[in-house]
Design a protein around this nucleic acid. Sequence first.
DNA 1: TACTTTTGTGAGTGATTACTCACTTTTGAT
DNA 2: ATCAAAAGTGAGTAATCACTCACAAAAGTA
Lengths: 189, 189
Amino acid sequence: MSDYSLLILSMTLKKDNIISVALELFAKHGYANTSTSKISKQAGVSEGLIFRHFVNKEGLLDAIVSVGTESFEAYFEKMKNESSAKQRIFLAIDFPLSIMNENKDYWNLVTSLKYQSPEISKKYHNSEIFNQFEELLISSFTALGLESPELETKYLILTITGLSGLLKQNDNQEEIKELINFIKNKYQY
Amino acid sequence: MSDYSLLILSMTLKKDNIISVALELFAKHGYANTSTSKISKQAGVSEGLIFRHFVNKEGLLDAIVSVGTESFEAYFEKMKNESSAKQRIFLAIDFPLSIMNENKDYWNLVTSLKYQSPEISKKYHNSEIFNQFEELLISSFTALGLESPELETKYLILTITGLSGLLKQNDNQEEIKELINFIKNKYQY
DNA sequence: TACTTTTGTGAGTGATTACTCACTTTTGAT
DNA sequence: ATCAAAAGTGAGTAATCACTCACAAAAGTA
């Protein structure tokens, strides 16, 4: 490896660079508003290379989403290992802020995909892991002896989704942390 | 007016027709994914007419949004005239379902604009009426003697936003009505 | 070194984009 | 009926879109 390794991308690194630049632009301007040409220019790469690696634009989106999904799975694993039902619910509430700090662009992209074309929306929001997330919350509310664990879960997911949207617009994290603590207080049984 | 009035659009009606077709397509496929060419074809109109009436594509979006804003203002007026603070809050919770039944496409479009390019997002989500809506909720929670009316309001708006998103994806209204009643129960002080 | 495979390039493809403009038709007022 | 203003047309514009392909450089393997 030469001394220029930090300046000049070795060949294989270009693939990763395409992914990170595309993630940034998709999150910032939306999938439909980001052209493969712009991605290639900002990544310092020929446009053809995108198609060599990812077949087409949607293949690039697939690659981005699958990379980011891992952090969601890791967080979910942490939740499953938490023995206290109440703490599991708190972890769920913390999720948007936590994943936002870790991978802001990725989460912005995933939430925005819901508002792209119906085909793209369907493709990325019917994941198995989300159903497991839902099941874990239902069992947690059941363990706490709540009357309607399913409805509690729906309400909480709705809250978490809303928090994600809020984090996207608002960069005042202190304000949102205050709101999160306020919400947690509602779950003090 | 001829007997064909229902089949052949009179000249001025074409403008309204462009708006309703564009609203439908923007809501269904997203603003960026809907071309002026497609709009003109589905509206049975020359493409040039769109630009004669609305200057450019964004002008067409403006026209759509301003038409739809009226229904939001009407609903807000109804809320202001409600003397019971608790009933005002219930009206706020009912808002997504109510406006969704009345003008589904419009509301889907407005919520999706948040995820378009930052410029478009800024333009349509800093409205004065939204601030008034927020103020009304804060005063309602204050009237009810709640400890943190500002945080209660943020939480409720987050809930309402989440409900809107849910209504967009899910067409099972009974399920959502059940959830809405469940949420209302949380506000039984 | 010699050879194959992988990675990378950049000019070029046809299709589609938002938008223009010279022109015609319809409308409404006199 | 006359005529100007408004509404409407459709062919045409340059720019951009996702994507292809013949070719070259680099990397892996022996």
